[in-house]
């Protein structure tokens, strides 16, 4: 018994290390590839401050973008993990449930009404939008909360309403094209150091919360009755977890727009590799989310330089087929 769990945790560490290496691989590639090719040696000497030949391209442009893509991917993945953990629904994620679309709609609405609003307010506005759409979702789907597919369908319908609203605002009050693309599909273009402090500060608060919740979510996965028996306040746990998850997703949205499917795929892949212990799932899901968005942004930049695709398009190209695959595997209709 003991040796088995030891082997289990050994395996976890190996998988974790593999994904860490994968993330580092993409991170280095992301920073060295682009419209201007820079050998990775020079990249390294720039990063450690040994040389400053390409100071802006690396330190001022690609590095912050790499960090933002990783952080946003990680927060979306973590958000998805928490949502799936609390609703125990394999099809749930902040984007499937319409939370990210609601956050985007709120930002687009405020941006259209007050074009000069400072970027600092975006996370707050996104949080309000995401919160409203969550309340809407829960009230509409109240009777079917325990039917995963039904909940997902209602969430998607809600997301459709929100995206129709986004399109309406983008057409009626045309914005600068880069902004429009971010709000339609999600993109990391033009994101820089100034976006990092917001992202990091939310992350610094929310990540410990998620870790604190991890053990309780494990208990919850034993079933409401059992969890209640052990002394977990199920109702409160649900609300707190949802709050943390929504905040993570909304902050990610406020920086990079409505990037789809990462919150769905990353936690799944993590569970598939790791089983159900949340404390181990949290770092792994975050790593997978970071790798997904980082690679999407990388390919979005290098497919046809100097023209860029929004990263959200690439995540959709991976995510939509994966979602269909999930549906075909899911048995409890």
């Amino acid at each position: 018994m003991f040796s088995q769990s030891l082997r289990q945790s050994n395996k976890s560490i190996y998988i974790g290390l593999i994904f860490l290496a994968l993330w580092m691989f993409f991170a280095v590639w992301h920073v060295s590839a682009g419209a201007v090719a820079i050998p990775w040696r020079e990249v390294l000497s720039n990063v450690v401050g040994y040389s400053d030949e390409h100071e802006f391209i690396i330190m001022g442009y690609r590095l912050p973008r790499m960090l933002i893509a990783s952080l946003v991917g990680a927060s979306l993945a973590l958000s998805g993990l928490l949502v799936q953990g609390v609703i125990r629904n394999p099809l749930a994620s902040p984007d499937v449930l319409g939370v990210t679309a609601g956050a985007s709609l709120a930002v687009v609405f405020v941006n259209a009404m007050l074009p000069d609003i400072a970027v600092v307010w975006f996370p707050v506005i996104a949080l309000i939008g995401g919160g409203i759409s969550t309340v809407l979702l829960l009230s509409i789907a109240k009777p079917v909360l325990h039917h995963p597919a039904a909940l997902a369908l209602i969430g998607i319908a809600l997301a459709a309403v929100m995206s129709a609203g986004i399109d309406y605002f983008l057409i009626s009050r045309p914005m600068e094209i880069n902004l429009s693309l971010i709000w339609m599909t999600g993109s990391v273009w033009g994101r820089n150091w100034s976006h990092l402090p917001i992202l990091l500060s939310f992350f610094a608060v929310l990540l410990p919360c998620a870790i604190w919740l991890a053990y309780r979510l494990d208990l919850l996965s034993l079933g409401d009755q059992t969890a209640h028996g052990i002394g977990v306040d199920v109702q409160r746990l649900r609300i707190v977890t949802l709050l943390v998850a929504i905040s993570l997703a909304c902050v990610a949205v406020s920086v990079c727009g409505n990037i789809g499917f990462i919150g769905l795929i990353a936690p799944h892949a993590a569970r598939f590799l790791f089983g159900n212990r949340h404390i181990a799932l949290i770092p792994l899901a975050m790593l997978i989310g970071a790798v997904l968005l980082l690679s999407a942004d990388l390919f979005a930049r290098i497919l046809m330089p100097p023209i860029e695709l929004p990263a959200g398009i690439l995540t959709a190209l991976i995510g939509a087929p994966y979602f269909i695959f999930l549906l075909s595997r899911y048995k409890h209709w």
């Binding site: 597919a149 039904a150 369908l153 087929p321 209709w333």
Partner: peptide
């Protein structure tokens, strides 16, 4: 087949084609 499953898969495909269209338009 469960009707909801069909709808969910259809929506995912719809999303996929919309994304492809966006890529093609940008290109």
């Amino acid at each position: 087949v469960n009707p909801i499953r069909v709808v969910l898969a259809g929506i995912a495909l719809n999303y996929l084609f919309i994304s492809l269209t966006r890529a093609a338009v940008i290109f």
